[in-house]
Design a protein around this nucleic acid. Structure first.
Length: 261
DNA sequence: ATGGCCGGCGCAGCCGGA
């Protein structure tokens, strides 16, 4: 079972690119971020034609997350718990039925947090705290789940081509990295690092020829519960998509889970 | 890693992104 996540940077601008990638990659589940669309305007039909059930949690102009699944959704929940006063659409979680059981998959778009001397940084850290609290609760169920999305976190120096440039940035601040470590230390597995030790990126800036010079960062992650990690067969980044026409600045990253029996 | 981009909104030029 293939589960992918991709910050598409606008579903309207990316519809052709997204459909081309879905046809090529054929994921069972795709978590999308930054759809930048209200739910009513999401181009459902185009994705439905490829066989996907669709759930969205969007807002006008910014943010917005979606879940596409070839298997049916048993239940879907938007927002993290204790999020009621937050008008930003950044979290959507679905329980998906597969022949051998169920798997819970979340599409998340963690706040950027810059500039760090603005309220945006404490908002990011608060969001990470709520995510950790929620993950702790999910772990008590002892079931397979995947927290997938744009974390806006560079976990380690080797996850950036030029880590020194990110010193002080909200994506790499000690508080941010500590919060990400704390989340993982609950017992979650960083799927990419479970499969590969070398330098791999998921984002290349549009500016200054970052893609051509391979000046990238790894900020899109899939964190797996122990029950999901036990089924992990592989994790890959579809970096070639960054070289397509009209690319997002992020590329898809996916896992293959053995969900037989 | 920015001087050099991009999308949304809405029809000019700003805001947000990473």
């Amino acid at each position: 079972m293939k589960i992918a996540t991709w910050n598409i940077n606008g579903v309207k601008a990316r519809i052709d690119t997204a459909l081309a990638w879905l046809k090529e990659a054929e994921p069972d589940v795709a978590c999308l971020q930054e759809i930048k669309s209200v739910d009513e305007n999401f181009p459902r039909e185009a994705f439905e034609k490829l066989g996907y059930n669709i759930e969205t949690h969007g807002q006008k102009g910014f943010n917005g997350v979606a879940l596409l699944s070839r298997h049916p959704f048993d239940e879907v929940t938007a927002r993290l718990p204790n999020d009621e006063e937050d008008e930003q659409t950044r979290y959507l979680e679905g329980v998906i039925s597969v022949p051998s059981g169920v798997i819970r998959v979340a599409s998340l778009y963690l706040p950027n947090g810059n500039p760090v001397d603005s309220p945006k940084f404490p908002y990011k850290l608060g969001w990470m705290e709520r995510l950790e609290r929620h993950a702790r609760k999910l772990l008590q169920e002892e079931e397979p789940f995947v927290l997938a999305g744009d974390y806006n976190v560079i976990p380690e120096p080797e996850d950036a081509r030029h880590p020194e440039i990110w010193e002080g940035d909200a994506l790499y601040r000690p508080e941010t990295r500590r919060a990400f470590r704390s989340l993982k230390n609950l017992g979650l597995t960083d799927a990419l690092r479970a499969c590969h030790a070398d330098e791999r990126f998921t984002f290349w800036d549009y500016q200054a020829g970052a893609w051509q010079k391979n000046i990238g960062i790894r900020i899109d992650h899939l964190l797996l519960s122990p029950q999901a990690a036990g089924r992990l067969r592989g994790c890959e980044i579809d970096a070639h998509v960054r070289g397509w026409e009209k690319p997002s600045d992020h590329v898809p990253i996916w896992i293959d889970l053995d969900m037989e029996a």
